Simulated scan of single mutants.
Amino acid sequence: MHILVLDGNHVETEFREKFGSAHEYTFLHTAHGPERDEDAVQQVIDVAAATAAVAFFFPAQFAADAPYRLLAAATFPVFVETTCHSLADSLSDPKNGPTTGLFFGFCGLPTLLNRQLLEVSVFHEADHEQLAATCATLGTDFRVVADRVGLVTPRVICQIINEACFTVQEGTATMQDVDLGMKLGTNYPHGPFAWANAIGVPRVYRVLESLWNDTHDERYKICPLLKRQAQRGEPFAV
């Protein structure tokens, strides 16, 4: 199967590990500025899409509407990274293509893609059978979750990271103590601060910001410590 990935270069290693070497991969960077012509970018996408069997793309990563024109004409399943916005919201803007076709949301945050289950949401309820067939061809088990901002795992992990930031900010424990305690106490693969660094602190911040804007739930009110690190673009010192 030819897998087309738009603006997912930051998780290329995870994609290849997750789906294996039996597939062909094309990773394209679509964001453009004054030095990149939108039509030229679209032509590159069209060439790759001509032989693609499935596409994954990261709408938060690119600054242009060009990839959405691919969605308008896609005849294959398209998985949209939806940790910061629901799939319904992604497809509601007329500029972002029609709401027909095979669209699925998926969790594509670093460290959360290469897992046994692919975390997905559906746009059309009638597409469950096609989703199962596509995932079978990709060679992955999957779990359908509600089409909500944050999905399930990103919502939980980012909330834990945020609470850990409050703990450190209040002087209750050090980052190192929190990370060690979580690893030993919960058997998580990473402590909250190491996990935030692996995901990318700015990405964690964007997920929580999206959750707060969507729900205004106090659980997602962002800790100033996390906000400062994200604004600086710096990892936590662990």
Score class of each variant (00 low, 15 high):
Thr83Tyr: 02
Gly97His: 06
Leu117Lys: 13
Ala74Leu: 05
Val122Trp: 00
His85Thr: 09
Phe103His: 15
Ala60Arg: 11
Val122Lys: 12
Leu87Pro: 03
Leu112Thr: 09
Glu129Asn: 11
Leu112Pro: 07
Thr99His: 04
Asp65Gln: 12
Leu70Thr: 06
Asn96Ala: 12
Leu102Pro: 06
Phe62Val: 01
Arg115Ser: 07
Phe104Ile: 08
Leu118Gln: 07
Ala88Tyr: 06
Leu109Asp: 07
Cys107Arg: 00
Glu125His: 14
Leu117Tyr: 12
Cys84Glu: 09
Gly101Pro: 04
Pro59Cys: 06
Asp65Thr: 14
Phe103Asp: 11
Gln130Lys: 15
Pro98Cys: 10
Ala132Met: 11
Ala60Ile: 12
Gln61Pro: 00
Thr100Arg: 14
Val80Ala: 02
Pro98Leu: 12
Leu91Cys: 08
His85Gly: 05
Leu102Gln: 13
Pro77Ser: 04
Phe57Cys: 05
Arg69Gly: 10
Ser92Ile: 10
Arg69Ile: 05
Asn114Ser: 12
Phe58His: 13
Ser90His: 04
Gln61His: 08
Gln116Glu: 14
Ser121Leu: 06
Gln116Met: 11
Thr83Ser: 13
His128Pro: 00
Gln130His: 15
Phe104Trp: 06
Gly101Arg: 10
Thr111His: 05
Leu102Arg: 13
Phe123Arg: 11
Leu87Trp: 01
Leu71Gly: 08
Ser86Asp: 05
Val78Met: 01
Gln130Met: 15
Thr75Leu: 01
Gly101Val: 02
Val78Ala: 09
Tyr68Glu: 01
Leu109Cys: 09
Ala60Trp: 03
Leu112Ile: 12
Gly97Cys: 08
Pro98Ile: 11
Leu131Lys: 12
Pro77Leu: 03
Ala63Met: 00
Glu125Asp: 15
Asn96Cys: 11
Leu113Ala: 01
Glu119Asp: 05
Phe56Cys: 07
Gly101Ser: 07
Val122Ile: 15
Glu81Met: 08
Leu117Ser: 04
Asn96Thr: 09
His128Cys: 08
Asp65Gly: 09
Thr111Lys: 12
Glu119Asn: 05
Gly105Ala: 07
Asp65Ile: 15
Asp89Ser: 10
Lys95Ile: 14
Thr134Ile: 05
Gln61Glu: 10
Ala63Ile: 03
Leu131Asp: 08
Phe56Thr: 08
Ala126Gly: 09
Val78Trp: 00
Lys95His: 15
Pro67Met: 03
His124Asp: 12
His128Lys: 13
Ser90Phe: 04
Phe106Ile: 07
Ala132Gln: 15
Phe62Tyr: 11
Arg69Glu: 11
Glu81Phe: 02
Leu87His: 02
Pro67Glu: 00
Asp65Pro: 09
Thr111Ser: 07
Leu91Arg: 15
Asn114Phe: 03
Glu129Ile: 13
Gly108Glu: 00
Phe56Asn: 04
Asn96Gly: 09
Glu81Asn: 02
Ala64Met: 07
Val122Ala: 11
Gly101Gln: 06
Ala74Glu: 07
Ser121Val: 10
Leu118Trp: 00
Thr134Pro: 02
Pro94Met: 10
Pro59Trp: 00
Ser121Ala: 13
Phe76Cys: 07
Phe57Arg: 01
Asn114Trp: 04
Phe76Tyr: 10
Ser121His: 04
Phe56Ser: 06
Gln61Leu: 05
Val122Arg: 14
Thr82Gln: 00
His128Val: 14
His124Cys: 07
Pro94Tyr: 07
His124Lys: 13
Ala72Gly: 15
Pro94Ser: 09
Glu129Val: 14
Ser121Gln: 06
